[in-house]
């Protein structure tokens, strides 16, 4: 067996995982992509273990460990995603922009606070932590309100509505 084969397969899998992590919007898809990358590594480990004929089987043992850790990671990751969803009502990565610089008076970059901007209260809210609450509420109203709410709300909120609407 040429070692190049598993190595190349693993490299391709890893790159695909990178693409998935970078390009996918849904957090669960990103988690899947992370799994892909982990598996690429595992493949490498197994292949090189075979190649080096390790008496301690360190490569395969490590693969097992990686699998276990991956299981734990997925469990934790999903727990985080669920907590996120409970708080933000969304798991779309590009809507989770609390890391962005706080929007200034002229900030066009406050699209992540689109719901807050919609109601006009979140921006003046003294505690940015509370933004989540009116946002969730606002999304409720938007979902319920239908057409005019969507016309009002630009940004992510509107997209979310559109996505739901596109569901058959």
């Amino acid at each position: 067996m040429h070692i190049v084969y598993p190595a190349v397969v693993s490299a391709l899998l890893f790159s695909i995982g990178v693409y998935g992590v970078l390009a996918r919007r849904n957090t669960i898809l990103v988690l899947m992509s992370v799994e892909l990358m982990l598996n690429a590594v595992s493949l490498n480990l197994v292949a090189f273990d075979v190649w080096l004929a390790d008496r301690l089987h360190s490569g395969q043992v490590l693969t097992l460990f990686v699998i276990v850790i991956a299981a734990a990671e997925v469990g934790l990751g999903l727990a985080i995603v669920l907590a996120l969803y409970r708080n933000r009502r969304t798991v779309d990565l590009d809507h989770l922009r609390a890391l962005a610089e706080p929007a200034t008076a002229t900030g066009p970059e406050q699209e992540d606070l689109g719901a807050g901007g919609l109601t006009g209260t979140a921006r003046e809210s003294p505690q940015p932590v509370n933004v989540a609450v009116p946002q969730g509420a606002a999304e409720e109203r938007r979902t319920a309100g239908g057409g005019e709410a969507q016309a009002e709300g630009g940004g992510g909120g509107g997209q979310a509505v559109r996505r739901e609407r596109g569901t058959p």
């Binding site: 999903l78 996505r163 569901t167």
Partner: peptide, 29 residues
């Protein structure tokens, strides 16, 4: 583990987050 457990976990995650089932146009950022 992977096929039997992790993927099932992921599927549960998908369901719990009420992700749209079916074709959706904006899965890519």
């Amino acid at each position: 583990i992977y096929v039997g457990a992790i993927v099932v976990l992921l599927l549960f995650g998908i369901m719990l987050t009420r992700a749209p089932i079916g074709r959706s146009a904006d899965l890519d950022s």
